[in-house]
Design a binder for these strands. Structure first.
Lengths: 348, 348
DNA sequence: TTTCAACACGCAAACGTTTTCGAGACCTTT
DNA sequence: AAAGGTCTCGAAAACGTTTGCGTGTTGAAA
């Protein structure tokens, strides 16, 4: 049960001063070879490692990145975390994670606690609660205190800081254009309500695709789902609304869902109603997760490269942390990739 | 760009000493009401919050829990993290996350770095690399330094520390017994190689169910999959091995997979070969994740309650951190739950 | 007026580092 | 032998807290 060794203990044991030990371990030329050897040997014996907390206090930097995400049981976010953690580690940083659970209050609380010295900077995706409230004072305050923030995924245009986002508009536009190119004339959209930025942009992309391809778009084919439908057990009402739409509009021959669950639910409902996928109906989802891969038939989807998002975010944050220059803020827009699988008949 | 306020700044500004400010903010009776009011008001104005790092150094505790898991893009592990984070937060702790990526070296490295003062204790699930190496020196050393560890999921019997595990044996025994009860005579098992403890136990449960129910078990119906099959693109060889088994043994009328992907792959292969689920073939998987819920037909599976595991682990760790008593180590065994869905015909 | 408590506050140490600066010991040079 | 120069090391400050103890001021009691 021996506790961690400290400089003082080594110094006392060897009859030298603390500073001598410190210098010896850092290989300073100030200390004689003989002493250095003796000290390093003894330190190795005791498994000495400098105390991070003391270092953080002295250097006024923790080498830790704070990450706040709405939830972690979620393929996309855990992929981003994976990217963040891996790259941060390569750069010698640790990652402190906090969950907002989509709640404004928890987001504020977490930012407050972490900002009190625990971390050097934030990477975060704002909660839906925050987006609803439109209250960003906690973010402003943090930035004003000189702590850098990198936002990812969920955008807040009015906040000036580094951002890394996905080109939701282009991604969904291309997906819908691909559907049109594959012969779909009546494409249903299953989307969220507009206050979530990414849902809004994906809807815009859907609309734009129609405009550009000169296809009429029927507003009745847009299903706006309340977010509550995302909670596990609320799949039933979602599916019944989808079924309703199919009954009203049997002409539907394509589905674009702004996330995996919506697309998959659309596909399942259609299958149960007798539609053949992809012959009668083609389906594309946004976010390429484990569900798309393992669905039957497997789901064509728009891949977001979550790990790259994390990687980019870390890179932007560390650049700002380690350079004194307060350059202009950047917004990195990452392109998506359309992964084709069995739920569509794209020629390519 | 004002930096964080410190006690010293407040003291200087108000012409009092640092200790007066500190005591006033803590509501000490030593300080007069008048001064206390003045100080708290000014501190509020400056958004003063005590520096966590300084507190950690002084108190020799960081109020941070280190979590090391093999990977995070994984439904089970992210559920555990969710449980850990939520409960730790309630208790006033933060969570530092590190990923081993199933590598022994990364696990050792992460433990070493985090153990140097950054955290108060560990919650971890050991990597496959560590299990292969059978080298646990890093864990022993950490424990010897007086830093508590709670292991979860992946067991290491020879290490004495607190553990929280799932009753894999019972869970799979009951699942297989349910299959037998529902009329299955020839149940295939898709499992991992034996060095992973949980895979081994689930296999044992499968065997025991046969023994107890007096059903003959055919060793040819056990498919041992190399772990590489878990990497995304290696589903194809997995599926072809499953198909092979079906061709050789058309009598198969039940499948038990030790994880979601195995069970789902088994079901998909069977569906493609014309089997009707659950009429011709019933399927049960271990780990109740998003795949099971959204599969078509949805998959009956053994639910592990990942969040509870995280919760229990935090509870054990904090109990050890906050009580001086070094009581005996405990192993908490959590029971599983058989969640019935469309892939089986269990009467219950 | 002296004495003594109560009150209000400041000093200083401690947590474990790093780093600047100064100082003693020894050696070389004149 | 004195002066100067190298080596080798130690003292102390600093990072931001908390806290035990000392101290000065006040008021009241003797």
């Amino acid at each position: 049960m021996k506790k961690k060794a400290t400089l003082k203990e080594i110094a006392n044991e060897l009859g030298v001063s603390i500073s001598t030990v410190s210098k010896a371990l850092k290989g300073s030329t100030e200390i004689s070879e003989e002493t250095t050897e003796k000290i390093t040997a003894f330190a190795k014996l005791l498994h000495y490692r400098p105390n991070n907390i003391a270092l953080s206090l002295k250097n006024r930097r923790t080498k830790t990145i704070g990450v706040i995400i709405p939830e972690i049981v979620h393929h996309f976010f855990s992929e981003v975390i994976q990217g963040i953690e891996t790259f941060a580690n390569e750069k010698g940083y640790n990652v402190l994670i906090a969950l907002s659970n989509e709640s404004f209050d928890k987001e504020v609380f977490n930012i407050d606690t972490l900002a009190s010295g625990s971390i050097d900077g934030f990477i975060l995706s704002v909660s839906k609660g925050t987006l609803k409230n439109q209250d960003f004072h906690h973010l402003y305050e943090t930035i004003n205190q000189g702590m850098p923030i990198v936002l990812f995924d969920r955008q807040i245009p009015e906040i000036s800081c580094d951002k890394v986002i996905v080109d939701d508009f282009q991604g969904s536009r291309r997906a819908v254009e691909a559907l049109i190119g594959a012969g779909c004339k009546h494409i249903a959209l299953i989307t969220t309500e507009d206050y979530v930025d990414v849902g809004f942009k994906r809807t815009q992309g859907y609309l734009d695709a129609h405009t550009r391809q000169g296809i009429a778009q029927n507003p009745d084919l847009i299903l706006r789902v309340n977010d509550q439908f995302f909670s596990e057990d609320a799949l039933v009402p979602l599916q019944s609304r989808i079924k309703e739409m199919f009954l009203l509009h049997p002409e539907i021959d394509g589905i674009f869902g702004v996330n995996e669950v919506y697309a998959l639910s659309g596909m399942k409902v259609a299958q149960r109603m007798g539609y053949k996928i992809p012959d009668d109906l083609q389906v594309v989802g946004f976010t390429d997760g484990v569900l798309s891969k393992h669905a039957y038939p497997s789901l064509t989807s728009v891949k977001q490269h979550g790990q790259n998002i994390g990687r980019e975010a870390v890179q932007m944050l560390i650049r700002r942390l380690e350079s004194e220059s307060d350059g202009p803020f950047e917004t990195k827009v990452l392109q998506t990739e359309l992964v084709q699988r069995e739920s569509t008949r794209f020629e390519n």
